[in-house]
Amino acid sequence: MTGHVGLAGVRDGALLRVVSGERTRLETFAALLAPLFASRQVAWRTVFERSGPAELDDLMMFGPREVHVVFRLDEGRDQALMCILPRDRNIGLMWQAARGIRDEVVRAHA
C-alpha cells in the first residue's frame, strides 16, 4: 500500500500541511524534509499548549476516503510526520503501511 506523505507542524498556532495532497516519492519527500528538519520554526507543541496537554503521537484520523496518521518523529525538536493513506477496512494494514513510511523517513534522516 502506498500513500501520500506529508509533514504536519504548527507555526504561529496554525497547523500547516507542508506537503500533502499529491502522491510523493519518498526521495522527494526526504529532500523536502531536510531543510524543514534543520529549521526550528516548525513547533509541533504550540497547538497543544493552546488546547490542553495532548499527545498526538500515533494518531490515526479516519476521513471518509483517506486516513491520516501522525507520528512524532523527533520529540526533542517537536517534529512530526503525517501520512495520508487510502482508506482500507484493514486498520492493521494501514498502521503497518504508515509505520513503514515513518521508519523509512527516520532511517533517511538518521
Binding site: 497547523l15 488546547s51 490542553g52 484520523m61
Partner: peptide, 26 residues
C-alpha cells in the same frame, strides 16, 4: 477535553473526520 481538542486539530486536516485513534498519556 483531550478528545475534544483532537477534533480542533483534526478539523484543520480533514473536516469530514468523525473518528480518530490515538495514544493518551502514553
Amino acid at each position: 477535553r483531550w478528545a475534544h481538542s483532537l477534533f480542533g486539530v483534526i478539523g484543520f486536516v480533514d473536516d469530514q473526520t468523525r473518528v480518530a485513534q490515538g495514544v493518551w498519556n502514553r
